[in-house]
């Protein structure tokens, strides 16, 4: 909030000095909107969360608080329960015990999930696929405009009338991101959304995710098996082991982060060794 105020000042000053008063106002309004968006993330409190499938106890008591607007990455070896945790947060599965609260009443549109598969409707054009994300607002008059705006945000405005089958894997995932963003969610849960992409597309998608998160200020929860990705994107990395949070690492590196910097590499190394030592124990 504070930083947004400060950074907005010089620009408006410059603009008014240059005699672009109407333009300056536009800039200020946009900043205003952005600031409102920034505060739009929801905090998340999890108390004593448990979940089992049959006799298999997947989550054994998770206690976690995520402040509004934080970018949290969840890592862990496969089968540790990280995806289950995400599905519970997103309301896709039923909770056995414990609670998840967002501090206030939420609309279904406030919480969105993005999966490893794009899950686009193959029989709907790209734009209609994005409109699906509007939830109950699908029928409203500005549905088209909002969907177009979301498509522009992910840089695919020119693909609006294409069928999903002609898009590349990365493009499909960007459409899925636009669909998740279009309702301006306050919590966005990512279930290994970049897992199926090639290395280069992955990096550009990571930048895109970071950019939209910074622009819109939602609370982001990213499940990933890629520790480098977690460290590059998140404010905080949670390591889950045997259904519990084993480590909670805060990443203070300044943004935009430089990939492969020594600071990130050492963090990545320590998290990896945590994961591997957990592996050894089992």
């Amino acid at each position: 909030m504070q930083t947004a105020l400060r950074t907005s000042l010089p620009e408006t000053e410059l603009a008014s000095r240059a005699g672009f008063a109407p333009h300056a106002r536009v800039v200020r309004e946009e900043r205003q909107g952005e600031r409102q968006a920034r505060s739009s993330g929801l905090p998340l409190s999890i108390r004593g969360l448990r979940k089992s499938f049959g006799s298999n106890e997947v989550l054994r008591g998770i206690d976690l608080h995520i402040p509004a607007g934080q970018f949290v990455a969840i890592v862990g070896k496969s089968g540790c329960g990280k995806s289950t945790l995400l599905r519970l947060i997103a309301g896709l599965d039923k909770i056995d015990a414990g609670s998840i609260s967002f501090g206030q009443n939420t609309q279904p549109e406030d919480i969105r999930v993005m999966f490893q598969e794009p899950r686009l409707l193959p029989w709907a054009r790209v734009l209609s696929n994005v409109e699906v994300g509007l939830g109950r607002d699908r029928a409203s008059g500005d549905a088209h405009t909002r969907a177009e705006k979301a498509l522009t945000e992910v840089g695919l405005a020119d693909k609006r009338d294409q069928w999903p089958s002609v898009l590349s894997g990365g493009q499909k995932q960007r459409v899925a991101l636009a669909r998740a963003l279009v309702s301006r969610p306050r919590v966005l849960a990512f279930d290994e959304p970049l897992g199926a992409l090639d290395a280069l597309t992955r990096i550009s998608m990571q930048r895109l995710l970071e950019r939209v998160w910074r622009d819109q200020g939602f609370t982001a929860i990213l499940v990933t098996h890629d520790v480098a990705e977690a460290v590059a994107l998140a404010d905080r990395v949670l390591v889950i082991d045997e259904g519990r949070i084993a480590h909670d690492v805060t990443i203070n590196a300044a943004r935009p982060r430089e990939r492969g910097s020594a600071e990130l590499a050492s963090l990545e190394g320590s998290i990896l060794s945590n994961l591997l030592s957990a592996e050894d124990r089992t």
Partner: peptide, 12 residues
């Protein structure tokens, strides 16, 4: 079924 789950999540 993944598409059906998607539809449900998006409040269809």
């Amino acid at each position: 079924p993944q598409l059906i789950e998607m539809g449900r999540i998006y409040g269809m």
